[in-house]
Amino acid sequence: MSNKAARNLFIFGSLFFFVIFLGLTFDTMKQIDGRAPEVTKEVDDGKQVWHKYDCIGCHTILGNGSYFAPDMTKVVEKKPAGYLKKFLMDPKSTNKNATMPKLGLSSKEADDMIAFLTWISKIDTNGWPPKPILAQAAGVGGAQQTRGQQVYQSQGCSNCHSINGIGGTSGPDLTKVGAAGKDAEWHMKHLKDPNSLVPGSAMPPYPSLSDSDLKELAAYLVSLK
């Protein structure tokens, strides 16, 4: 191949692929709006809060960012909005293990941020992040679970609490919660209204749990020693 032929291959080949890329970009731009809910004013305000505090300096979102702190794509599915709001406004007083600094978000900014993250969670991401294989499997197979364990699972307690390393880290670890000296009665009251026993608690109340479910769940928690 002559140098001139190589040069022409470079120039026209690159232009060819760039034109294809432009075509695909055009088509993608038409499809993007249909793959997520409408962007409301709150969502856009929340996005600006996201940029203002340089959240991507630590977090990832849609898998892109700094890998220092958890991914925010599905965070609203895992954490109740009440917890998120308290956490955003004052992380360390909400979860004493938190690394995140207190950035000084106003109440409105926190609400807008939650609206933005709720919108993010509804984007069609082609199935990302995938559901963890083992955690999925553990919920459907294995040994017979007690009623208390089933309630623990069905209420999503493990989104914030962990037992033996499985679960979230936003709430206290429950591996040895039964050894903390609280009886079943205390736990039942706490589950119905956490704030009445732990003022300022970020945990949401579970008033809709039936008395028998409450009793079983409390028994399970007391058994963890």
């Binding site: 958890p70 995938p130 294989i133 962990s162 390393g165």
Partner: peptide, 8 residues
């Protein structure tokens, strides 16, 4: 991703 442990 596979076992479902928390990021933190």
């Amino acid at each position: 991703r596979l076992m479902g442990l928390d990021y933190v």
